[in-house]
């Protein structure tokens, strides 16, 4: 009976996805295909639109890909991206979880949580450009707030040395995004039925237990979202490192993969083909890593259930 109903409603699945598909086809499909194709061509040079397949100009079809993969600068960019992302993500998710725990705790009588919640997201409202200026000035050299506070006699040039650059970029990234992550997590917690918490309370669970045994499992779906989107956002990191120190400072201490791609495409030689190849590589990396995250965080019960349902469905169909 249940299956029959599901089958009957299937057409709404198609119907409701039409707007997305249509919009995607109009605005995004062509650029995506174009990018993919470019990776295998010789297109470079500003304003140039004429391209040839690499084999037709006597080159290996995958030249652009091997160029990127063997480039020291790409390796550096890839490494930087990971270092900066991890340095920012660990405190980001840590504080976001902590604040979520504090601010959604039904038992604590902390006042002003509403205000804190609102304030913590606000660094995300400010544009990356303003944020970059703020931190440039804070870490200015030889005159700057931090230098004046801590070592006025021996000012240190933070923004031309590798590790200070990485740490500052990671910190700004953290500062701009922890509130965003917190808001996502809180939305997940708010979606949990209050009855679950009441039940936990009655069972005598303390707060820490409630958070780890009830809250976290219940927002697992949102955690998956946060992880995957942070990963994607992290691997595409651009604004803050670009505006704060740029791609060239300290031999590219803050050069991320996305900055590498933009440099290829727009800064200097307009190597559209290599930039496209690098994009495809980055895309594949993201897909693989996301797949791993999905796999690790998959809902085992749900998966089993789904499989079962599918079998049922198939059986039901056969029955008709």
């Amino acid at each position: 009976m249940r299956n029959k109903r599901l089958v009957n409603y299937a057409k709404y699945g198609y119907f409701f996805s039409i707007p997305f598909i249509l919009t995607f086809c109009i605005f995004t499909l062509y650029p995506v295909i174009y990018t993919f194709v470019l990776g295998f061509t010789d297109l470079k040079g500003a304003g140039n639109t004429e391209w040839h397949w690499l084999p037709s100009v006597g080159k290996n079809l995958f030249t652009n890909f091997t160029d990127v993969l063997t480039s020291k600068t790409f390796h550096k960019a890839f490494k930087n991206t990971w270092i900066i992302w991890i340095l920012n993500f660990i405190p980001q998710i840590g504080f976001a979880l902590l604040f979520t725990a504090w601010f959604t705790d039904r038992r604590s009588k902390v006042k002003g949580t509403g205000l804190f919640k609102i304030l913590f997201y606000m660094p995300n409202i400010i544009t990356a450009a303003s944020m970059a200026i703020l931190f440039q000035k804070l870490f200015g050299y030889p005159v700057g707030a931090v230098n004046q506070l801590f070592n006025a006699n021996q000012p240190y040039n933070f923004l031309i040395n590798e590790w200070p650059i990485k740490l500052i970029v990671a910190f700004v990234q953290f500062f701009q995004w922890y509130g965003h992550t917190m808001v996502n997590l809180i939305a997940g917690v708010i979606g949990i039925s209050p009855e679950i918490f009441e039940a936990a309370e009655i069972d005598g669970a303390n707060r820490v237990q409630t958070f780890f045994k009830v809250t976290i499992p219940c927002i697992r779906q949102i955690m998956l979202f946060v992880l995957v989107t942070s990963l994607i956002g992290g691997l595409n990191m651009f604004d803050i490192p670009q505006l704060l120190v740029g791609a060239k400072a300290a031999n590219g201490a803050a050069l991320t993969t996305n900055m590498y791609i933009r440099n290829q495409a727009f800064d200097g030689s307009y190597l559209y083909n290599r930039a496209a190849a690098a994009s495809v590589i980055l895309f594949l990396v993201i897909v693989i890593l996301s797949a791993i995250v999905f796999y690790i965080l998959r809902d085992k019960d749900e998966a089993r259930l789904k499989k079962l349902r599918k079998q049922e469905l198939r059986a039901a169909k056969k029955g008709f």
Partner: peptide
């Protein structure tokens, strides 16, 4: 100037960057 690399290292770093980013 900051003392992070020696003179040859500086030139080497420069050449690598130009090669990798501009293809010259």
């Amino acid at each position: 100037a900051e003392g992070n690399v020696d003179r040859d290292g500086a030139i080497e770093q420069f050449k690598t960057n130009v090669q990798d980013n501009l293809s010259f």
